Simulated assay, not measured.
Amino acid sequence: SSSKYKVKRTMDHYYCTCPAWRNQSAHPVSARTCKHLRSLLGDAYEEARLKLKNPNGPAATATKSTSKGRNGSIPSAKKKAPEVLLAVKWDEESTDPTGWWVSEKLDGVRTLWAPKGGEGREGAMLSRLGNPFMVPKDWMDKLPKDVTLDGELFGGRGEFQSTVGIVKTMGSKGWKNITFQIFDVPSMGNEPFEDRLQWLQENFSEGGKYHSKEFVVVDQTCAESKDHVFDMLKEVEAHGGEGLMLRKPGSKYEGRRSSTLLKIKTFFDAEAEVTGYVPGKGKHTGSTGALKCKMASGKTFAVGSGLSDKQRARPPKVGTIIVYRFQELTKDGVPRFPTFVGEAADKTVAKDAEVPASRKV
């Protein structure tokens, strides 16, 4: 055709600017191919590379005879999103937290371990949309084959963006810094939360059947009072944590948003779509000063705080959904003093935060 596309290699990742390669966004970069890469590298090389990079994924078994869509792209299998328990915000006026279980709200990537991951996989760690993360095979070999686990892939406080990059890359050296923080067992969902927690502690603690340094059961503390919860919140935030989670005692696991799981944060997190860039000034001259963003409400704002020099040099592309953090909204519904957190994992549509009237100034 008259179109021209650019092929690039960065370490062991191959890229192409053609629509066929870009339309495989359901797969990680390391598990995509197209006719241009096949033409340059050869079918045999591509089959071996894809199998190595994503041994359990659909792209690994794609061959030249695979049914393809327009532009030569390989259609993605329709995924069913896992039914996971989602939290609602804590209303301190209506819910007394005394006796509830309290844990830190981790700044990681929500993950469901599915022993039968679908699409021919024997086991997979899935995102909320059902996309597999590029977890090392030895991790999956160590995990139980008869229960599902709910948790987060966690790289440490304040490491959300780097964690997203690592979990989407097969073979990344960064996996040594990631842990699977486990907080529930959905397949045992009809049993009280305390029984599920006991099962986790018995099986993943030292001497347990599935004990491994990569797997951590999230600590749970029984709340003594509302003041006790606020004291824990202050301590977590003082050490760079994001907030707290409250879990109702004796509760079952529900695959939906439920008032049995509450979240507490001083800061609000929201998502926005990148629409453009503000040129940098002063020390940022020649790079990006801020990202122009659009909220789900349609209101626009700019966020520059939180961007590293590397991100200013190569900012998120227009159309990318980003996560930003703020403390309050203006009366016009625009975030005050927003801070860039990172690119959203597995999101295609922005979502605004629910902010009470008391936090609008």
Rank of each mutant, 00 (worst) to 15 (best):
K6L: 12
P19V: 04
A26D: 14
A26Y: 11
L37A: 07
R38V: 07
K51L: 12
N54W: 05
N56A: 14
P58R: 10
P58G: 10
A60K: 08
T63D: 13
K64N: 13
S67V: 15
K68L: 13
N71V: 05
S73E: 15
K78S: 13
K79T: 13
K80T: 14
P82M: 09
V84R: 00
L86K: 02
A87M: 12
A87K: 07
A87L: 10
S94N: 12
V109D: 00
T111S: 08
T111L: 01
T111I: 00
R121T: 07
A124C: 04
M125S: 11
S127L: 04
N131R: 11
V135P: 07
M140P: 03
L143A: 04
T148C: 07
L149V: 07
E152K: 00
G158P: 04
G158A: 06
E159W: 03
I166C: 09
K168E: 15
M170D: 14
K176V: 15
I182D: 08
V185T: 09
M188Q: 11
Q198N: 11
L200D: 03
N203H: 04
F204I: 01
K209Q: 12
H211K: 09
H211V: 02
S212N: 15
E214V: 06
V217C: 09
D219M: 12
A223P: 10
K226M: 14
K226I: 12
D227W: 12
E237V: 13
E242M: 03
M245S: 03
L246I: 02
K248L: 06
R256F: 02
L261Q: 04
F268D: 09
P279C: 08
G280E: 09
T288F: 01
T288P: 05
G289S: 11
T300F: 05
F301L: 07
I321W: 09
I321S: 12
Q327R: 15
Q327F: 15
E328M: 15
V334I: 15
P335E: 09
F337D: 14
P338I: 11
A345E: 13
S358R: 09
R359C: 08
K360H: 06
V361H: 08
